[in-house]
Amino acid sequence: MSYTRRGFLKLTGAGVACLSLSQLGFDLTEARAYATSLKTKGAKEVITICPFCSVSCHIIAHVRDGKLISTEGDPDFPINEGALCAKGAALLSMSRNEHRIKKPLYRAPYSEKWEEKDWDWVLSKIARRVKDTRDKELIEKNDKGQTVNRLDSMFLLGTSHASNEECALIHQAMRGLGVVHMDHQARI
């Protein structure tokens, strides 16, 4: 039976993990054909960074047709030299696990369920909550009459999962709103 490389890729790509060589027979030339059908061959390599501890191991993400097909340590990065621990090695299944939240969800007061919403709906609703809270509760002067422009009743918690860019913009936004209750993993 003949097997195209593409066909074999489909087989492995579907997550069939057994090393099915029976259809190839035990002829070693065909086993070699199997071996050349490396699942990452020809895939785009993208550099990403492990999202866990602060070693920040670099990882190569293999992408084909817009889909992540494999991740492994970047052997060129001088710190991890291709190595990864259990968590870093599990990046592929982390990004595609079935528990991911896919749409904005909304839980109304006293409700017993989540409802799916679109981004425009949730963002405008959130903006309204922020503004109403701020307009009602911003403290412009303290007891001593000093200007404090502080919104004590609103807070932000998180996150060391954010990039530097995201941290910078979130900090700026929060200070603009007058938020002072701001904290994240650095204090845990």
């Binding site: 070699r32 291709g82 990864l84």
Partner: peptide, 17 residues
């Protein structure tokens, strides 16, 4: 064997710190 035939390290060896 799929990796080794392409001159790559086995996945477990590459990952080992």
């Amino acid at each position: 064997i799929d990796r080794v035939r392409e001159g790559m390290l086995p996945a477990c060896v590459l990952a080992c710190p």
